[in-house]
Design a protein around this nucleic acid. Sequence first.
DNA 1: TTGTAAGCGTTATCAA
DNA 2: TTGATAACGCTTACAA
Lengths: 356, 356
Amino acid sequence: MTPSKKTPASRTPTARATIADVARVAGVSKATVSRFMNHREKLLTPDIATRVEVAIAALGYSPSPMAQALKRGRSRLIGLVVADVTNPFSVAVLRGAEKACQQAGYLLMLFNLGNDSGRESEAIAALSAYQVEGFILNTLGHDTGAATHAASRGKPVVLVDRRHPEMQADFVSLDNAGAVRLAASHLLQVGYRELLFVSEPVQGVSSREEREAAFRSFISTSAATAHRPHGNSFECTADDEHGLDQALKKLRQRAAKGLPAVLSSNAVVTLRVVAAMARLGWQLGPDVGLVGIDDTEWAPYVGPGLSAIAQPTDELGRIAALCLIERLKGLDLPPRQILLSGRLVARGSSAVGPKT
Amino acid sequence: MTPSKKTPASRTPTARATIADVARVAGVSKATVSRFMNHREKLLTPDIATRVEVAIAALGYSPSPMAQALKRGRSRLIGLVVADVTNPFSVAVLRGAEKACQQAGYLLMLFNLGNDSGRESEAIAALSAYQVEGFILNTLGHDTGAATHAASRGKPVVLVDRRHPEMQADFVSLDNAGAVRLAASHLLQVGYRELLFVSEPVQGVSSREEREAAFRSFISTSAATAHRPHGNSFECTADDEHGLDQALKKLRQRAAKGLPAVLSSNAVVTLRVVAAMARLGWQLGPDVGLVGIDDTEWAPYVGPGLSAIAQPTDELGRIAALCLIERLKGLDLPPRQILLSGRLVARGSSAVGPKT
DNA sequence: TTGTAAGCGTTATCAA
DNA sequence: TTGATAACGCTTACAA
């Protein structure tokens, strides 16, 4: 018998107590300790129970989730894959999800793609290896093989904001169509008539597609209206400042008989539009109106204040986590779609006059 | 013999391949497979090696990090505890750290305190349980017991931005004193004379203390200078808008013979100051100057543009991760302090006239 | 009600 | 150079 087996003194003085230590101190078997931990008051003599309890307290024992995971096949870990942590929307979702997970006793393993959507498979593989019980995905939705694979292996997946083509999974998102209608009709109401929808390259990203489509359909629907709006779309990339400037100039030229306004498809784009307006020296609101999807803490202080459709970001993250946890608890339903409404926050950038 | 033991067909068709599966397919022992994985070309007959290699490829085998962690005591996991993911500085650090960790083959487990600094112990306990090999801590530094405990157990800890009192650990941060001097002397140079340092409640948070102290010392040092600046400090909380308004009014009253300016200690405070200025209807720059620590993507577009000290945030996160990884590789040095310099970005909010 | 023992997927020690 | 075999810390039949 090696001394390291039995005498606690021979352990590294700082090592975690194991179930065997507890069993020894309490004078019971490991199985009993395990039962105490998992079934608590059931099937346990009060006497033994207290002995175990005391030993646990004395040693400061807590079970090793790693060992539990190995044995049970469940890890109490949830994998979160994010296209870009820099995106404030992603962060907000992350925040909501993390909170809900913690409350349910799950921990989050984070994998940031850094906008390199090709690594989605890599991310999922890495997280799978750690036996995460399920995934929350806020990614572009290309490179969808691994996710589908995970899903087919019975690991639940929840998609946030962006769908993956052909993937059967719960989906939690802003009601994109509603949000775009809200923004666009607000612009019409205020008096803008010549609208430009600006988004990042659509490139198969579902939320961008949906918003763009909603915009087109809004325009064609309300063409018959008293307002008779016009609408166009523009895709802007990070480096092509010139292109955006040109698009805005054309917008203003077209707007001979109606005021021009931009509807931007997310916070990143909004910032680009704001930058372009600054370059052109135009006033947000009177010269060109602006409403963007995504409200931010700084929106009130940019120019005359940026009008926005606020997403219930925390709620999106929270609901995504809760959906996932329900599945983990065995809920077996066909994939659900949960669409949350945006809220219009009107500020100076969608006011025609200097003060409304 | 239960069929599930040996016949692959009886496994859940989707289960991961294990080392035993590989061994069986290759016709070797588990030990051999393990050796192939860990020592590669050493001590292996070419014939056997290729058989193993083929089997691994055929089954798509990759070892279970959980099982490895259990056996080795090392998990290739790093715990990141953040006071508040909402803070853009924290996110930026997170981003840098996550990237470096991924490159080194580590995964990040995230725990967000949601600004409830009392839960720091809880966070560390939870992450410890998962055998994380080390910690990156960007927390307030109260509730320091658990971290110290982890450190004493030989788990390396790196502190980012905020020190923990009496804790021996690597520390990575902005050079706070330098940053404050940079900001303050810029204000003097431009022509501001009556300075107000605004920060969140200092309350034992090291970075806030250091910045405040640096401000005081800058003022007293340069009092003998030709500029003869005055300086005061103000702590502002999220809900006390009135207090901040009053502080700014007093600042302007004091500034009878010298232009007034605010030096804000981080992005959160900067936003509050901007909001207060909007409430008061004052112009940033001509009425009251402003330089804040932390540059943000929206800073150029708020008012006349917000002057800022940009922190090398990505670099901070990256270096924190690298420090940790060095320690994990066995580096045994006394605690290091790594201080990175900030960079001044001057914009309209620190320009006395309408255009410089 | 409790204990014994097998096994989760690895790695490490020892023989062969 | 390779193969049994015993751990790692835990859960769970099955026996007692």
